[in-house]
Design a protein around this nucleic acid. Sequence first.
DNA 1: AAGCTTACCAACCGCTAGAAC
DNA 2: TGTTCTAGCGGTTGGTAAGCT
Length: 341
Amino acid sequence: MARSGGGGLVEGGGGGGGGLKKGPWTQAEDKLLVDHVRRHGEGNWNAVRRETGLQRCGKSCRLRWANHLRPNLRKGPFSPEEERQILRLHGLIGNKWARISSHLPGRTDNEIKNYWNTRLKRRQRAGLPLYPPDIEREIALLRAQNINPFADADGSASVSLPPPLLYDAGNPFALPPAVPLPPSGSHSPLINQSYPLLNQMQGMQQQVFHLAGGHHQSPQQQPVFHHHQQHDGGGGGFVSSGLPPLPTRAHELPSNQFDTSSSGSGGLLESLLLGDDHHLPRQHNPTMVKVNSMPAFTYRDAGSRQTVHGGAGAGSDSDEASHCQPGEDIHHSAKWNFTFD
DNA sequence: AAGCTTACCAACCGCTAGAAC
DNA sequence: TGTTCTAGCGGTTGGTAAGCT
């Protein structure tokens, strides 16, 4: 499944290989990694190799843990609501997979990225719009009101909506900045619910801008911020029918954190934009930091298909019935056949 | 049944930012 | 202040499975 195929491939020269293995992970390697994380917690990934003898680079360990081994991962197809969330977020922030995944508990940035690159780009090839009209309109409305969900708390200049981005004449769903909000009830529920607060946030943003030293010359004049250019020149990777890329917040959440709390700017408005998915658990996953509080690992015996529980905190995520258990590899339809004690 | 095409997705690579020294 | 190390992000690759002809 990996690029290198076959097991046992060893990394060659560049990249600091030094005899490190590449390619698919084996059960034994997974066990070593999980054991290490249980003992020491996440982070310091390069120490994994030193302390376990695992012939994998720290980068590879981190990725394996984040995408496959960490608890509370949610595998399987995206639900319709998850798909809509991805669409909304992508329409707002572009290819910021880590940030998008932070709004989809249990989903990894890699998963979302793959989803976008395959299922949605297929629509483009077929000549279909990437965003459903209702979602595209929601996004356009928010932009038309100069809402920037990703302003830094200090109003620093890494964020903003450069005026040219506000109105795209080629986008049938985009509205000019000065357009008044149509009567309540004509929008999707999301917009109707959030609009008063969005206006409030807009006022706050203007205040922040003022405090940060901006010069308000007229209510219509847009604040001048510098655009945070993406290094790869991809402009956020937009391939939409017209929604332009938005600048992004300078400080991104780690991909494995679900902390989308309202502290600091961005969180509140992001919640509003997303309709605040109350139905989804959005707690900061405590198991990812503190080893002692890690939930029980639960594995299914490969032969008997019996579920084996181990460790403290068993059943802590029993409500996530659709989730794969740590170590379960749905892609290979294989289950680990070892347990931890 | 065999060959081909497409979709999926795990894992890699290059790059960047922040922390530590 | 400059360098090195570490962690993380986004883009890309390529093996495998599924679907199609």
